[in-house]
């Protein structure tokens, strides 16, 4: 799941923001944890404990090398593996867009945890709009490098779409930030995040 997006420059920045949203010493689960670097960061900087979930066999030993507990299974099968209310924070980082049933997964996240953190590529970014509006083609970008026929990203959404779904599910958005992949802050990003944000980061709880 780590290679769904091109995240080389982004991931560190992404981790910094997520880290601010996680309580020290809390229980965390990272869904689609890749090589476990986010959890490792949280374990070292915030003394959290918990598990990473990852499907890719090439990532198992990397997580273990990172001293991260990793559980290998497919998130499309739900979170039946985990007890209700067993985590303080459930993280789904850059993975939502590849899930078969994102809505059910979000509900499951709020079953097993108190607070959810979801990050995803914002499909309403102006460059994507431009490619569709004027090029007449499905967008291909640094963040979404695939063609329409081979992309694992089957459920793309915009920041506004995500807010609407959270509302329908009875989730209260606690924080919502849009960022550029390079981490630069601009005025446009602050005033029109759905237009200028490449990656969206949302933190929510049960209402």
């Amino acid at each position: 799941m780590s290679k769904l997006l091109n995240t080389s420059s982004l991931s560190r920045y992404d981790h910094q923001i997520i880290s601010q949203w996680v309580e020290p010493g809390s229980r965390v689960i990272d869904l689609g944890c890749g090589d476990g670097s986010l959890l490792k960061h949280l374990q070292t900087s915030k003394n959290v404990s918990g598990y990473g979930v990852e499907l890719n066999p090439a990532m198992m030993d990397k997580c273990i090398d990172n001293d991260v507990n990793v559980i290998q299974f497919n998130l499309d099968q739900g979170l039946g593996h985990f007890d209700s209310d067993s985590f303080d924070t459930v993280i789904l980082s850059l993975t939502l867009q590849s899930m078969r049933k994102p809505r059910i997964l979000l509900e499951e996240m709020m079953r097993v945890g108190r607070q959810g953190i979801v990050t995803f590529p914002n499909f309403a970014h102006w460059r994507n709009r431009w490619q569709i509006a004027f090029g007449g083609r499905m967008p291909v970008s640094d963040e979404l490098p695939y063609k329409w026929y081979n992309t694992p990203n089957i459920h793309l959404c915009t920041l506004n779409d995500f807010h609407t779904l959270c509302d329908q599910l009875g989730f209260q958005i606690e924080s919502s930030i849009a960022v550029r992949a390079d981490g630069k802050q601009t005025i446009g990003l602050k005033t029109m995040p759905n237009l200028f944000g490449e990656i969206a980061l949302c933190r929510f709880i049960k209402r």
Partner: peptide, 18 residues
């Protein structure tokens, strides 16, 4: 997975490879 779930419910450190 039955084993892993019971270990998780006891909040033990566990990694699981399938």
């Amino acid at each position: 997975r039955e084993i892993v779930r019971a270990l998780q419910s006891n909040k033990l450190n566990v990694s699981y490879a399938e």
